[in-house]
């Protein structure tokens, strides 16, 4: 009778490891998603950003932290706001900045994503800021780049937009301090939103009191509650007593499918108007990742009103991106 061995557990490989984002010392190497970042690292990013807010308020808005470093903004999908704020952040850190709108160049000539990356690596890049239409693209790129290169996700498919989520955390912390007592409502197209996914992870990482998602079922991913949120099917109950309301952009193309009957009906049921905002806490803040569709998800009176912090988000966004970029690239030196 042959000896039977005990079957070992399935071998888990390195690719299963989410800590692709951290180096051996636990410092930030890539920023692919908020998920997998230790809470103290999130706090460190926010604190570092705090120190950059004062830089952006000075008349000479430049620090030499990334002097001599080369950053490529690789946009496989068009973007104005995110690209501009990244570029500003990079320039304020004194980095050499190259912008590549790959959507209109290499890939249409049939070059593969990997070939594009290899070519840019050969140009001595230090960091790639990446936006791509496919979920998981940033994770893939981070897993493929040479060891000395960092990758920062500027939005990939429906998966993640971590700098947006971090700047939202920064904004909430700026106005509200203690996350544990807060009720935060995320309203709108969660299904197609990388912003919402990253926000949910970010808010849960800092132990936010309650994270709510408010949307019709056609705009919610399956089993969304497993991500740690409470689902509200209507706006009135969803924002009642909320401290923070985050409105998501409703892409116009969603209207052409069968997800919603019309823009008008959406605004009627889920549009944030001054009357509805009154259901939230009187000191509630209203946020939006932009660009705003006035009259679709939010009324102008709210977007421009006293509770709106939408423009603060934009300013803080530069500081948060400066923090992420400098932490990724200055790991050897003290911050």
């Amino acid at each position: 009778m042959a000896v039977k061995f005990v079957r070992p557990k399935r071998v888990r490989l390195a690719r299963d490891n989410w800590n692709i984002q951290l180096d051996e010392q636990g410092r930030l190497r890539h920023l692919v998603d908020v998920q997998g970042l230790p809470p103290q690292l999130i706090t460190q990013i926010l604190d570092t950003a705090e120190s950059f807010v004062s830089v952006t308020d000075r008349s000479i808005k430049k620090v030499p932290l990334l002097r001599g470093r080369t950053v490529f903004n690789l946009f496989f999908e068009p973007s104005t706001r995110t690209r501009t704020t990244f570029e500003l952040a990079e320039k304020r850190l004194s980095a050499d900045v190259m912008n590549l709108n790959v959507a209109t160049s290499a890939t249409t000539k049939g070059e593969s994503l990997l070939d594009t990356l290899r070519n840019l690596e050969a140009m001595q890049a230090d960091l790639f800021v990446v936006r791509h239409a496919d979920s998981g693209a940033a994770h893939f790129i981070a897993s493929q780049v040479a060891p000395h290169i960092s990758v920062v996700n500027a939005g990939d498919g429906r998966y993640a937009h971590p700098t947006q989520a971090l700047l939202d955390l920064f904004t909430i912390r700026h106005f509200k301090q203690d996350f544990t007592r807060l009720r935060v409502a995320i309203v709108g197209d969660v299904l197609h939103s990388r912003v919402a996914r990253s926000q949910i992870h970010a808010l849960n990482s800092v132990n936010t009191g309650e994270v709510r998602v408010v949307a019709p079922p056609t705009l919610l991913p399956a089993a969304v509650e497993r991500m740690g949120v409470h689902v509200y099917p209507d706006l009135e109950s969803g924002i009642r007593d909320a401290d923070v309301i985050i409105m998501l952009r409703l892409q116009k193309e969603r209207m052409r499918g069968a997800l919603l009957p019309s823009e008008g009906e959406y605004f009627q049921r889920f549009g944030l108007t001054p009357e509805r905002l009154a259901l939230a806490r009187p000191d509630a803040i209203v946020m939006h990742p932009g660009p705003v569709n006035r009259g679709v998800e939010i009324a102008s009176a709210v977007a421009d009103g006293p509770q709106s912090v939408i423009l603060d988000q934009v300013s803080f966004g530069i500081a948060v991106r400066m923090a992420v970029l400098s932490m990724c690239l200055n790991r050897g030196e003290s911050q």
Partner: peptide, 15 residues
């Protein structure tokens, strides 16, 4: 598969 994993990863899902 349309379920918690695809929802979390933001992958277009097949029910």
């Amino acid at each position: 598969h349309e379920g918690p994993v695809a929802s979390r990863l933001g992958l277009p899902a097949i029910p």
